[in-house]
């Protein structure tokens, strides 16, 4: 049975992250949109919710924790995965307390993120 493709949003102000993750995540047939600015991403999310949002934490204007809160306020079923190059116990715990699905430190392999997305996908489809 064919499953519906997941709609995945990637938000990172480092252009290279979206460029690398988009094709890697699209390999399994999912639909991926990459954004470099939180505001643009949130505006897009307001038009149409995504199943999964992968967001960096440290970004100008809106940080990843605010994105997490605003996404979950709009769509509780969306799984938000935090990625960061500045991981600490405090930030990780804060992200989880605020509802992040998972938290992963950069650098990571696309396959590591894929595994998290598979888990998120199982929860979404259960």
């Amino acid at each position: 049975m064919n499953e519906q493709p997941l709609k995945i949003m990637v938000i990172d102000d480092e252009n290279i992250v979206g460029k690398r993750l988009k094709p890697a995540l699209e390999k399994t047939g999912d639909i991926v949109e990459a954004f470099e600015e939180g505001e643009t991403a949130l505006a897009r999310f307001a038009q149409e919710p995504f199943d999964i949002v992968v967001t960096d934490i440290r970004m100008e204007k809106i940080d990843g924790i605010e994105i997490l809160e605003r996404i979950l306020a709009k769509s509780q079923r969306t799984k938000v995965i935090i990625i960061t190059g500045y991981a600490t116990v405090e930030i990780a715990r804060e992200a989880l307390s605020k509802g992040a699905f998972d938290f992963i430190a950069k650098p990571f392999k696309p396959s590591d993120l894929r595994q998290i997305i598979e888990r998120a996908s199982k929860e979404l489809r259960s």
Binding site: A87, A92, R93, E94, L96, S97, G99, A100, D102, F103, I104, A105, D112, Q115, I116
Partner: peptide, 13 residues
Amino acid sequence: GYRKFQVMTYSMK
């Protein structure tokens, strides 16, 4: 039981 103490990819790593 608090969510902040649950296992995540980062903490397992």
